[in-house]
């Protein structure tokens, strides 16, 4: 009789434990949103990836559509090659643009994808050719300082023209 009661309690204990784990995974964790199901792999080369890490989200229009699978350094081109796992449900055109963006001012970095206009879609293993590097704060600041300095020597008109140019090159 007593043994039955003990068995019952231990059963309840284990069920509660599993329920708590399930609750954590569903309610607090990203198991629901991270469940990518079938994926295909794309790669993209960047001159600078900034602080992008493995498992960082890949977003299109702000919606998570994949994860960064791994990041390698290519010793021949001196570029970082990022492999992305993208949900099979989402297809992107050949001239898709991939850029490394930051969530908020100081938040984590993620990979943003904007599809292009071509009708042919990227297949598994393809490489995204249009990429935009991460913004590096130091470079941004030095650029700004440089422009400030040139503003002092030249007239006001050239400065306002050169500023958007510099930004686009970043």
């Amino acid at each position: 009789m007593e043994r039955k009661a003990i068995d019952l309690w231990v059963g309840i204990f284990v069920v509660l434990g599993v329920a708590a784990l399930f609750g954590l995974a569903m309610k607090a964790g990203n198991l629901t949103s991270n469940n990518l199901g079938d994926t295909y792999t794309l790669t993209a080369a960047f001159e600078n990836i900034g602080g992008l890490k493995r498992n960082a989200p890949v977003k299109s229009a702000g919606v998570v559509i994949g994860r960064v699978d791994n990041i390698k350094f290519d010793p021949t081109t001196y570029e970082a090659v990022v492999a992305l796992k993208i949900d099979k449900r989402f297809q992107f055109s050949k001239d898709t643009n991939a850029s490394i963006l930051t969530a908020g001012l100081l938040g984590e970095q993620y990979l943003g994808i904007e599809t292009g206009g071509e009708s042919v879609n990227l297949k598994d293993g393809d490489k995204i050719s249009h990429t935009q590097d991460a913004m590096v704060l130091e470079k941004l600041i030095s650029k700004f300082m440089f422009n400030k300095a040139s503003e002092g020597t030249g007239d006001g008109k050239t400065t306002t023209e050169s500023e958007p140019k510099a930004k686009s090159r970043l």
Binding site: L24, A25, K27, A28, G29, N30, L31, S33, N34, N55
Partner: peptide, 19 residues
């Protein structure tokens, strides 16, 4: 409260590591 949490808490890296 929940969506921020879900965006940051990773099942493998946080919950499984905790276990």
């Amino acid at each position: 409260f929940w969506s921020q949490m879900q965006a940051q808490v990773d099942f493998r890296f946080d919950i499984l590591n905790s276990v």
